[in-house]
């Protein structure tokens, strides 16, 4: 099968999603910033007392808060989580992820298991990783290799 069929038929669980960074609703923005930095993620999943996701808190919200100014770092993230967010079941086809990213204008979608528990976060990066497998290696590396090689001294 080709890329189109695989996007239509393969489940979201075949994408390389990572464990989400989970924070409770009461966590301060400062904790989210630290967790995102440490985890190398642009998004945390905000959960209620039962571990059920209530929303996402992303780099985009942080950028808005910085622009607004004020002492927001110690405010609870529950005040700032994004109203519009989406989840996708791990067994749904990858095309559903594409539709949700686009329909909601999101960068990240929370992946949930059959019980509704958050098991991962997926964004465009995972989608790009999946698609990049379908194309030859020469388009994958040439620019970055060229940039690296220019920085190395050669010859006498």
């Amino acid at each position: 099968m080709g890329l189109r069929d695989d996007l239509l038929n393969e489940p979201v669980s075949s994408l390389p999603f990572r464990e989400p960074i989970r924070l409770p609703l009461t966590a301060p923005v400062r904790a989210a910033v630290a967790a995102m930095r440490e985890g190398g993620e642009g998004c945390v999943v905000v959960t209620n007392d039962h571990g059920t996701p209530e929303g996402n808190f992303t780099e985009h919200q942080i950028a808005g808060l910085v622009a607004r100014g004020g002492a927001f770092l110690d405010e609870p993230i529950s005040r700032h989580i994004r109203d519009a967010w989406a989840k996708v079941r791990h067994s749904e086809p990858i095309t559903n992820l594409i539709h949700k990213l686009q329909d909601y204008g999101l960068r990240y979608v929370t992946v949930v298991d059959d019980a509704g528990k958050a098991i991962g976060v997926l964004g465009q990066k995972a989608l790009m990783d999946f698609i990049s497998e379908y194309f030859p290696l020469q388009v994958k590396t040439q620019d970055m290799e060229a940039k690296v090689s220019l920085e190395k001294r050669e010859g006498a």
Binding site: Q124, I131, F135, V139, K140
Partner: peptide, 12 residues
């Protein structure tokens, strides 16, 4: 190609 752009997004 768009494939190249996607590969750069993925790799980098």
């Amino acid at each position: 190609s768009p494939a190249k752009a996607i590969n750069l997004m993925s790799m980098g």
